[in-house]
Amino acid sequence: MSENYRNNFLKEVEERVEEGHWVKMCMQCGVCAGSCPLGAHWAHPPQELFMMIRAGKREEVLTSDSMWMCTSCYNCVVRCPRKLPITHIMHGLANLAYRLGLSPKNQTTQKFASMFWNNLAQTGRVNELKLSLGMYFKDGFGQGIKNAMAMQSVGLGMVKAKRLNPMELFGGHGIKDKSGFHAMLKKAREIEDRRKNFA
């Protein structure tokens, strides 16, 4: 299906990216780039991504790690003179790249974003301990132990302050209606996949 889009990446973005219909409104002022807390780390700041989309640079945009640098601070959104919901467009581009398997391998924020969702989707609520450990151990057991040791003082401090419960490893918080919750998410995903041609 995505073959159909190859000739018109802007159209693809408008149809498959959250708030993608706004991309054509960008007037290339660059306020977003100058407002971004992690701006220095973006290979292509938002206004450049928007121009690249319009120029049909599909591979370059979707394989970029730029949009994964978004901290969701909304600085660009409130400052954009054209009122583009840039934060959401970045999330949407990241989602499209991820769904198509084009996002850069081992991008840590992508891994974290995916872990976060899978964590909450399981029980309906985030299990912070499992999420932290998942992140430490994402590059294997040995590295995981090293990471966990490096963060030991933070972890112990949190346990002492009663803000981290080691018992969360064996279950932890969750909602009651898990089956309804899972069915709801499954349906939402189905609808979205159909609408965005991910199915």
Partner: peptide, 18 residues
Amino acid sequence: DWNCCGASIGYAEGGELP
């Protein structure tokens, strides 16, 4: 029985409607 809001980081896996 409230659930997690997805925060601003669930987008990669969660997408828009979910």
